[in-house]
Design a protein around this nucleic acid. Structure first.
Lengths: 115, 115
DNA sequence: AACCATAGTATACTAAAAGATACTGTAAAG
DNA sequence: CTTTACAGTATCTTTTAGTATACTATGGTT
């Protein structure tokens, strides 16, 4: 990992794509079930506002992580899918999920010990 | 990755520890050279303020990622080291660094193609 | 006596992220 | 004729993250 030059590290570049209160969970949903319509996704993310969902999706699209397909219909139909490139994030998400799970257990254990 | 329940995902827990403008690079420095004094680390992070460095380190300490050792001397001496547990983040940082490197290449290529 | 280094804390400020709410246009259903 | 669903946009407010700057205590050096 740039053993001699941490200042050249590119961790932030990956991080900047995953960061955002909703991005990881959006990606997980898209990884699990490839295509989603806008409102379908919205229903799966309780609490998100349209504005935020739009913003997160646009940012992911900008980085070629998700693909947006507009069907010129009325009422509108827009589908979101994870791209081939987006799938390359899966191992990272997987690793973070496992680490996070273990970390949560560790914290709960710690709190139990204290009481 | 909780194939059936993205809502139980723990990616955020891992993410919350890595997020912060300085945390990844602090961790990389500590992974590369185990113990650092406060100002030694500060010198390696151009632009960081004392307040931020203190805050980031305290947060990492809180999660048992770094260990803080105070030597009761004057002038003060405080050493920071990555914990055994903290080292478990290394594969994730490594994976993100590699992904980020590739992503940066990809973006540069894209910009070149456009011009 | 003034200055340096150590490892911070305190206070005030700015910028960025997120949230709340209202609004758009069209077609179909009730 | 009113309501619903669709996929958003626009505007405003709140919250959080990060920056800037000044200050603390102690002891050694010049």
């Amino acid at each position: 990992m740039e053993e001699r030059h941490p200042e050249l590290c590119r961790v932030e570049d990956a991080l900047s794509i995953l960061v955002g209160k909703w991005k990881p969970i959006i990606l997980l949903h898209l990884l699990q079930e490839d295509t989603h319509r806008f409102n379908e996704l919205k229903r799966k993310l309780p609490g998100i506002t349209q504005k935020m969902l739009t913003k997160q999706l646009r940012e992911l699209e900008e980085e070629d992580i998700v693909e947006r397909t507009v069907y010129p219909q009325v009422p509108p139909k827009v589908e979101y899918a994870i791209s081939e490139y987006g799938r390359s994030l899966e191992p990272i998400l997987e690793a973070m999920h496992e680490w996070g799970q273990n970390h949560t257990l560790r914290k709960n254990q710690k709190n139990k010990d204290e009481s």
